[in-house]
Design a protein around this nucleic acid. Structure first.
Length: 799
RNA sequence: GCGGAUGUGAUGGAAUUGGUAGACAUGCAGGAUUUAGGUUCCUGUGCCGCGAGGCGUGUGGGUUCGAGUCCCUUCAUCCGCACCA
C-alpha cells in the first residue's frame, strides 16, 4: 500500500475533531503545563508560512508534554480587531464583523489541516462582545486606579490609516503597518500610565526565563538611566531644572539648552522674542524623523537677556533653545558640558561657546571626552582630584544638602497612547459629562457594544467614525444623570491581546475574566513562543497589564509568562522577505496539497536553527517527504521480530531517545529530526523489530502525528500514538562497548585505535604506539610527552 | 553612534566543558531496477595532489600538547534603538 498522506491526514483530523483528545481539563490530578503561541490576526490572505514555524514547534512541545504525563493547555484564538479587516470591509462594502467571521473560519480550517493539537473548545475571538466585555472591564479598572487618563499631547499620526499610533508602532518615521509617513499632531488622547511600571517591568525580568535578547531589548526600550536633577537659578527669577547622568561634570557646564517646547519660554521675556518664536515654529513643523535626520548639524538660538547661574562655579552662563533637546525626556532642559558630551561639543563649536575639561585624559580640542568613567576630576573646585565615581557621589550629596538637586532615575519609556480613531476596535467605556468630567460606564452596562454604523470610513478631521452617530454618542452621565457624550475613539489592537491567555483558562465565564480557581491552576504560562517584533509591543504591554491585574488581586502571579522563546523568520528562496510584490510567497496550502501536512511540519522544523532566519528551499522539502516514505515502507515491508529492542539497534535507540528529548527542550528541532533520520537509516541497514519500530513512532509522533497514528494503528499497537508514554532511555545503554580513540601526534590527527571504555592511560598509549601507522611515524623518535583524554583521544609529543 | 547577533563544503545546516570539523539533508556524479520516471535502492562527493601527503571554519595575530570554540585585531552582513542629556 502506498503512503496516501491525503487520505491519512484527513482521517486523523476528523477523528481528533470528533473525539477531542487534546482538550485540557480544569480538574486533573496530573501536573499542569501551559504552552502558548501568539494567536493569529485572521487576515484575508489566510495563513502564511510565518505561522507554521512557531505553531509546529510549540505543538511538538505540547504533544511531548502530554506523552510525559502532563495535563496540557495548548489553546488558540483570534486577535481579530484591527485596521486591515476594517480597510478590507470598506473597500468591498462589507461589515468588518462579517469579514472577521469569514477569516476566522478560513484560518480555523487551515490550522486544523496542519494537525495542531489545540484545544479548540477554548477558542477565543477578541471581537466577541463576551470577550471584549472583559477588555473593557480591565480598562475601567485602569481608569479607576488612575492609570488611564486623557491628555492633550502631540501624537504620531499616520497619514494613511488616519489614526494615532503608539510610539512602539512608529518605525523610522513611518507607520509600522502600512509604511505611510507619520506626522505630529496635537490631539486629546487616552493614555495608559505604563511608565509607572517602568521600574518593575525592567527589574522583574530577573524573575523569568526569557531568551537573553528579549530581555536586553526590553531593558533598552525601557531605557533606565540613573542621574540627578539639578536646579540652576536664572536672572529671570525662575529656577531651570535639568536632568543629567553626569552630575560630576557640573563644573564643566558652560551653557544651558532647553527644548523649543519648554514651558518657561511662554513666561520669559527675552530680548529677542521674534527670533525665538521663529525657531519654535520651524522646529514644530519638523517631524520627529526630520529632527533626528538633521542630527549632524546643530541649530539653535540664544535666549538673550536671560542667563543661568552655574551653582558650583557661580558664573553666569547663556541659555539657548535647540531642538536637539527633547521636550519629552527628563525635564526638557539640559546643562551643556561640551568637554564631555559630543552633542554639546558640536553645539559649542558652532556657537563659539567655552569648552572646559573637567575629567583629565582626553583631547577636548578634537572631540568631547565621553568615555571617561575611570577618569579623575580636574578644574572642579572641591571635587578636583576625585575619581569620577566618587565625584558623582560627592556632588550629588552636596546638591541635596544645599537643596539644589536630588538623585533621579529617568526612563525612555513613555506612556502608552491608547486611543484609535477607527471603528473596528473595542469602544472605550467612558463618557464625558459637562459637569462631572470623564466618567466610567457602569460595570453592569458592559459590554459596551460597538454599534452598527452605516459608514465607517475614516474622517479627514481625525475623528472616529463613531463620532458621526449622535444617537449612540449621546447618553446620560452615570454619575449625575445629566446629558453626556460617549468617548468615540476605540482601543488599539494591542488591548485584546494583552490578556487573552487568561481567558483561555476559563473561556465561558460570565462573572469574571476567568475564575480564581482556573487562574490559580493554569497561570502563569509555562512556555510562550512568539515573534521578536512583539518584544517591545505586545510582550511589554501584556506584562504591564498583568502586573496591574496582579496589583488589584485578579491574578495570582506578578509575571504572565515564565519562559519566552522566539523563532526566526522564513525568507523566500531568493533570500528576500516573502511578499506578494516580489512573487516569492510560498503558500502552506500548496505544500500540504503536494506533500502533505506531516512533510510540511517536518521540513519547517528541519529547515535550520529555530531561532534564526531561514531560507525556504523547495527541493529540501522533498527530502522530508522521502524520509516519511521511507518510514512508511519500513513499517510495511521490513519489520520482523518481537516487541523488544533488537540487539543491533539498542544503542542507537537509547541514544535517539536521549537526543530527541533534549533537543526538543532546547529548540533544536532540526537536529532532533536528523537523529530520527539516522535511526531510520540504521533500520534500513538492518531490519528493525516491532519494538524498534514502536519507539521510532513514539519519537516521531509529535513531529509527524498523522503518519505516526496511521502506522501505529496498522501495526496493531494499543491506543493512540499521541497517548503513549514518552519513551525513556537508559544512560548506560547509550555508551559504546568499545571506544574509538583519536591518536594525535603533535596535535595532528594521525589515526584511531579501539580500546575498552575507561581504559587507563597506559593501555591507551600502548594501543596507540602499537598501531602500524602510528609506529611508522614515531619510529626513531622519542616520545617526550603524552596527553590522554579519557575515552576520547591521546596526543603524543615526539622529538 | 549605542546595543545584540552572524560569518563553516556547491546549498540548508551539524559539532557538551577547547579534544577525530562537515552529522542530517539538498544538489551533483556514477551504478542497479524500470517501457518510462519529479520512483526506489546502492556508491561517491571539503579543497589541492596520481600518490605519500598538504591545506582547510570571513581576515591577521595570540594563548595551548591541541582552537570553529578562548583572547586581541580587522572586514562583511543582518536585526533592534537612535540628539534619551
Amino acid at each position: 500500500m502506498k503512503y496516501d498522506f491525503k487520505q491519512i491526514e484527513k482521517k486523523w483530523q476528523n477523528r481528533w475533531e470528533a473525539t477531542r483528545p487534546f482538550a485540557a481539563e480544569n480538574d486533573s490530578a496530573k501536573p499542569k503545563y501551559y504552552v502558548l503561541v501568539e494567536f493569529p490576526y485572521p487576515s484575508g490572505d489566510g495563513l502564511h508560512l510565518g505561522h507554521p514555524r512557531p505553531y509546529t514547534a510549540m505543538d511538538i512541545v505540547a504533544r511531548k508534554r502530554r506523552m510525559q504525563g502532563y495535563n496540557v493547555l495548548f489553546p488558540i484564538g483570534f486577535d481579530a480587531f484591527g485596521l486591515p479587516t476594517e480597510n478590507y470591509a470598506i473597500k468591498n462594502k462589507l461589515h468588518p464583523s462579517d469579514v472577521t467571521r469569514n477569516n476566522i473560519k478560513r484560518f480555523s480550517e487551515q490550522l486544523k489541516m496542519l494537525g495542531y493539537s489545540f484545544d479548540w473548545d477554548r477558542c477565543v475571538d477578541t471581537t466577541d462582545p463576551e470577550y471584549y466585555k472583559w477588555t473593557q472591564w480591565i480598562f475601567l479598572k485602569l481608569f479607576e486606579n488612575g492609570l488611564a487618563y486623557k491628555a492633550q499631547i502631540p501624537v504620531n499620526w499616520c497619514t494613511s490609516c488616519k489614526c494615532v499610533l503608539a510610539n512602539e508602532e512608529v518605525v523610522d518615521g513611518e507607520c509600522e503597518r502600512c509604511g505611510a509617513p507619520v506626522v505630529r499632531r496635537e490631539k486629546s488622547q487616552w493614555m495608559l500610565r505604563i511608565t509607572k511600571y517602568a521600574q518593575r517591568l525592567a527589574d522583574d525580568l530577573d524573575d523569568v526565563d526569557y531568551i537573553e535578547r528579549v530581555k536586553i531589548q526590553q531593558r533598552n526600550w525601557i531605557g533606565r538611566s540613573v542621574g540627578a536633577e539639578v536646579d540652576f537659578k536664572t536672572t529671570a527669577g525662575d529656577a531651570l531644572r535639568v536632568f543629567t547622568t553626569r552630575p560630576d561634570t557640573l563644573f564643566g557646564a558652560t551653557y544651558m539648552v532647553i527644548s523649543p517646547e519648554h514651558q518657561l519660554l511662554q513666561k520669559w521675556l527675552a530680548d529677542n522674542p521674534d527670533e525665538i518664536k521663529a525657531y519654535q515654529e520651524t522646529a514644530a513643523k519638523k517631524s520627529d524623523f526630520e529632527r533626528t535626520e538633521l542630527a549632524k548639524d546643530k541649530t539653535g538660538v540664544e535666549i538673550k537677556g536671560i542667563r543661568a547661574i552655574n551653582p558650583v562655579t557661580e558664573r553666569e552662563i547663556p541659555i539657548y533653545i535647540s531642538d536637539y533637546v527633547l521636550a519629552s525626556y527628563g525635564t526638557g532642559a539640559i546643562m551643556a558640558v561640551p568637554g564631555h558630551d559630543q552633542r554639546d561639543w558640536e553645539f559649542a563649536k558652532k556657537f563659539d561657546l567655552p569648552i572646559v575639561e573637567v575629567v583629565a585624559g582626553g583631547d577636548i580640542e578634537k572631540e568631547a571626552y565621553t568615555d571617561c568613567d575611570n577618569g579623575v576630576m580636574v578644574n572642579s573646585g572641591f571635587i578636583s582630584g576625585l575619581p569620577v565615581n566618587d565625584a558623582i557621589a560627592t556632588i550629588t550629596k552636596w546638591l541635596a544638602d544645599k537643596g539644589l538637586g536630588e538623585e533621579k532615575i529617568n526612563y525612555k519609556l513613555r506612556d502608552w497612547v491608547f486611543s484609535r480613531q477607527r471603528y473596528w476596535g473595542e469602544p472605550i467605556p467612558i463618557v464625558h459629562c459637562e459637569k462631572c468630567g470623564y466618567v466610567a460606564v457602569t460595570e453592569s452596562d458592559l459590554p459596551l457594544l460597538l454599534p452598527n454604523v452605516e459608514n465607517y470610513e475614516t474622517t479627514e478631521t481625525g475623528e472616529s467614525p463613531l463620532a458621526a452617530m449622535p444617537e449612540w454618542t449621546s447618553t446620560d452621565c452615570p454619575k449625575c444623570g445629566g446629558p453626556a457624550q460617549r468617548e468615540t475613539d476605540t482601543m488599539p489592537q494591542w488591548a485584546g491581546s494583552s490578556w487573552y491567555f487568561l481567558r483561555y483558562t476559563d473561556v465561558a465565564n460570565k462573572n469574571a475574566l476567568a475564575s480564581n480557581k482556573a487562574l490559580d491552576y493554569w497561570t502563569p504560562v509555562d512556555w510562550y513562543n512568539g515573534g521578536m517584533e512583539h518584544t517591545t509591543l505586545h510582550l511589554l504591554y501584556s506584562r504591564f497589564w498583568h502586573k496591574f491585574l496582579f496589583d488589584i488581586g485578579v491574578v495570582p502571579f506578578h509575571e504572565p509568562y515564565m519562559k519566552r522563546t522566539s523563532h526566526g523568520m522564513i525568507l523566500g528562496e531568493d533570500g528576500q522577505k516573502m511578499s506578494k510584490s516580489r512573487g516569492n510567497v510560498i503558500n502552506p496550502d500548496d505544500i500540504i496539497g503536494e506533500y502533505g501536512t506531516d512533510t510540511l511540519r517536518l521540513y519547517i522544523m528541519f529547515i535550520g536553527d529555530f531561532e534564526k532566519t531561514a531560507l525556504w528551499s523547495q527541493s529540501a522539502v522533498k527530502g522530508c517527504k522521502r524520509f516519511l516514505d521511507r518510514v512508511w515502507n519500513l513499517s510495511e515491508e521490513r519489520v520482523g521480530g518481537g516487541d523488544e529492542y533488537s540487539a543491533a539497534h539498542e544503542l542507537a535507540i537509547h541514544r535517539a531517545i536521549k537526543k530527541v528529548g533534549s533537543d526538543i527542550e532546547a529548540l533544536k528541532f532540526n537536529t532532533a529530526i536528523a537523529t530520527l533520520m539516522s535511526l531510520v537509516n540504521d533500520y534500513y541497514e538492518k531490519a528493525p523489530s516491532r519494538g524498534d519500530l514502536k519507539v521510532l513512532l513514539n519519537l516521531l509522533s509529535p513531529f509527524a502525528p498523522h503518519i505516526a497514528e496511521e502506522l501505529w494503528e496498522m501495526q496493531g499497537f494499543d491506543g493512540f500514538a499521541a497517548e503513549q508514554p514518552w519513551p525513556v532511555f537508559d544512560e548506560s545503554k547509550t555508551l559504546d562497548a568499545v571506544r574509538e580513540i583519536a591518536v594525535q601526534i603533535g596535535g595532528k590527527l594521525r589515526g584511531t585505535v579501539f580500546v575498552a571504555p575507561d581504559s587507563d592511560d597506559e593501555t591507551v598509549i600502548s594501543a596507540a604506539v602499537a598501531d602500524e601507522k602510528i609506529a611508522r611515524i614515531i619510529d626513531g623518535k622519542e616520545i617526550v610527552r603524552t596527553i590522554v583524554v579519557k575515552n576520547k583521544l591521546v596526543n603524543l609529543i615526539i622529538k
